Computed example of a mutant assay.
Amino acid sequence: MAAQLADEEIDALEPTFLGPTWLREQDRIWKLPERTLGWQIARWCAEFLKAEDGGPDASTREQLRFVLWLYAVDETGRFIYHKAVLQRLWGQGPALDLNLVCQSPSSSLGTFPRRSSALPAAIVA
């Protein structure tokens, strides 16, 4: 059986952060990528995704930073990151739409050819 920690011991624990999503500048503001397609992803989510109650889909600030870094590109337009993990306990805020982040950023974001039924069909490379 694991030993129980006192409240004071839990409060004294320092969190561990890996990756750029949690980096801060010297003035404590969040460090954001210089170039990213993430803002376009966030704009698309705000416009087209809806919450269960029909209202706008709301992501946390952490989730937004994660998407900004996931879709960060270098000065030649190539993706900087090709793999990512955001792991949280159940109930830690709204769920990030996994359709946006599960596919590799280096793959096609999808094309939508017309089918005979005139409904779009997504093709992901």
Rank of each mutant, 00 (worst) to 15 (best):
A2W: 06
A2E: 10
E9C: 01
I10L: 12
A12V: 03
L13P: 02
G19M: 14
G19N: 15
W22L: 08
K31Y: 00
L32C: 04
L32E: 14
L32S: 04
L32Y: 11
P33Q: 07
E34M: 06
R35I: 14
R35E: 08
T36H: 03
T36G: 06
G38M: 07
G38K: 05
W39D: 14
W39M: 03
Q40C: 00
Q40N: 11
R43N: 08
A46Y: 08
E47T: 11
D53F: 04
D53W: 05
D53V: 07
G54D: 05
S59F: 11
R61C: 00
E62N: 07
Q63R: 11
L64W: 13
L64C: 05
V67K: 02
V67Y: 02
L70M: 12
A72H: 02
A72K: 04
V73D: 00
E75R: 12
E75M: 05
T76F: 12
G77K: 09
R78F: 01
F79G: 01
I80H: 00
K83E: 15
A84W: 15
A84I: 03
Q87D: 12
R88V: 09
W90S: 14
W90M: 10
P94G: 02
L96W: 10
L96T: 11
L100T: 03
V101P: 01
V101Y: 06
C102Q: 10
C102N: 11
Q103H: 14
S104K: 11
P105L: 07
P105W: 09
S107Q: 11
R114Y: 14
R115I: 03
S116T: 07
S117C: 12
A121K: 13
I123Y: 06
